[in-house]
Every structure is written in structure tokens, then in C-alpha cells.
Amino acid sequence: MPELKCPVCLGSVKIPDDALDGELFEHEECGAQLELVTSNGSRVLRLAEEVGEDWGE
């Protein structure tokens, strides 16, 4: 299970081996919501787009 750097707190985030580009993860230590992307051939985490609000019961 690879470990990537959290772009918010710089801590370590474990990512499952089968994770897909675009998958979203939550860094349990700092609560950051992160997206897995491939950049220049390397897998990195970046801050996910803001969570949307939706109404409804």
C-alpha cells in the first residue's frame, strides 16, 4: 500500500494498491479531502474540489 504526502499537513496518507486516478480520500489525521491524480508520471494527492451542497430530505 503506497504512502503519499498530504498536500495540506504534509503527513503521510496510505493509498490502496488498486486506487484509481480521480479517487477521493480523506486524510484521517487532518481531515483534508484529497484526490489522487497522476502528474508527470507520478501519483500524487491534491486537494479535492469543494464538496457541493444539495438540498432535499
Binding site: G22, E23, L24, A48, G52
Partner: peptide
């Protein structure tokens, strides 16, 4: 976001070539 059910839905949406949108509901 890392829980298995959320992951299963997000991965399935990605495998359909779509980008998952994460929502929080006011209701």
C-alpha cells in the same frame, strides 16, 4: 470519503468515465 461504500460508488462512477461529485445534503 475513504470508507468502503463511498469508495465503491466513486470507483464505479470513475469506471463509467465520469467524475464523482461529493455532496452534503442540507436536509
Amino acid at each position: 470519503l475513504s470508507s468502503p461504500v463511498v469508495r465503491a460508488l466513486n470507483r464505479s462512477i470513475l469506471k463509467h468515465g465520469r467524475r464523482p461529485r461529493i455532496l452534503k445534503k442540507t436536509g
